[in-house]
Design a protein around this nucleic acid. Sequence first.
DNA 1: GCTGATACTATACAACCGTTCAGCAAGGAA
DNA 2: TTCCTTGCTGAACGGTTGTATAGTATCAGC
Lengths: 204, 204
Amino acid sequence: MADKQKPKLRLSPAERRSLLEDAACACIARGGIRDFTVDKVVAEAGVSRGLITHHFGSMDGLLAAVYSRMYHDWLTVMATPRPGLSRIEAMIEALVSPALFGREVLKIWLTLWGEIAINPVLRDTHRQLYGDYRASIMLALSEAAHANGRQIDAETVATAFICLIDGFGVQRCVEPALLSEEEARAACWAFLRPYIGDQGVAVR
Amino acid sequence: MADKQKPKLRLSPAERRSLLEDAACACIARGGIRDFTVDKVVAEAGVSRGLITHHFGSMDGLLAAVYSRMYHDWLTVMATPRPGLSRIEAMIEALVSPALFGREVLKIWLTLWGEIAINPVLRDTHRQLYGDYRASIMLALSEAAHANGRQIDAETVATAFICLIDGFGVQRCVEPALLSEEEARAACWAFLRPYIGDQGVAVR
DNA sequence: GCTGATACTATACAACCGTTCAGCAAGGAA
DNA sequence: TTCCTTGCTGAACGGTTGTATAGTATCAGC
């Protein structure tokens, strides 16, 4: 409050775009796609109505930017190595970490999925980005299976695993109390154990 | 087309409500929550604008009706016994059947989840109905595990299994080509096998 | 300091939003 | 037939939607 002394600066396009994406995320997390409106977003960002069109061309443009930003952030967190943990362990820890498992983030994802399902333009963007996500999971799975001397159909397992993760997201959004971080982690390992073994980690 | 010769009949409230719910489902499946509007729904149903308020009080009322109708249909299909199949087998077959696994149906669910996540009233309705869903899955799991002489924590397994199913729905909506009915069935069994065994069914 | 590019504001606009309400008309009860 | 409940219509309302656009403010290059 006290530090918000009207900067009213003239920002670089990259900075302003980022601020508007932040505001859009906040609106979507609060009220879903119905709160993704010009008035709500510019009020959240503290700018004038014209800025969205100026920087993104349209609301669809802003939504696409939000989507690819979310994907980028997701992949970044997921690909961050954690000292002492194998790739698959680090990945699961990332998946249940607040940065990816937080309800606000997941509510945004849920909204975005709903839009992808009906918006062909967004679906094309999704197809391009989604490959990286899928590939990184397949890599971690293959590595883990190989380390335990097993052979798996990484593609099939990865698909089902991704579904499980997405389902966690849905469940956390509609009934957060039913699935804690701890339970999600355990469910991940229970799912993967038949394929890749225990990885020598104490799992409960 | 030819058979739509303007019946303009005066229907019973139950019939008219059902027709409006149908129309609302069609709109939501087509364009998500943004196409759930008075104009779109009444155009789809071929009635006047005032009818929604007359029968449901508000658009929120109609959405709640759509939600509970979807839940009721879902449970009905899932609880239908299939000759020669155990309860858990019948349940999985139902889950991958067109009635529940069809993309149109799943797009409606995806939209509804998004609304539940942000609408407290809808969330309360969800809590009440959701218990039945959860309970029926737990029952089937316990039964199957017991038949194979195993002991499981049905609650934990059911939660994870529900997540997997929800994730199937998400995946089918955003990228239908990646998950066929056959693959979903196989993934279900692969997930459940460690808990309840094979049930003596040929699974591939 | 001057100039031009552009970040940004603010208004205007037509279309659409959900809800209200007065009135019409169908059909059972008398 | 007459009456009255009620399914149903359609216009009207105030508010919100996304976009276009004219105008202002700021900064980089000169």
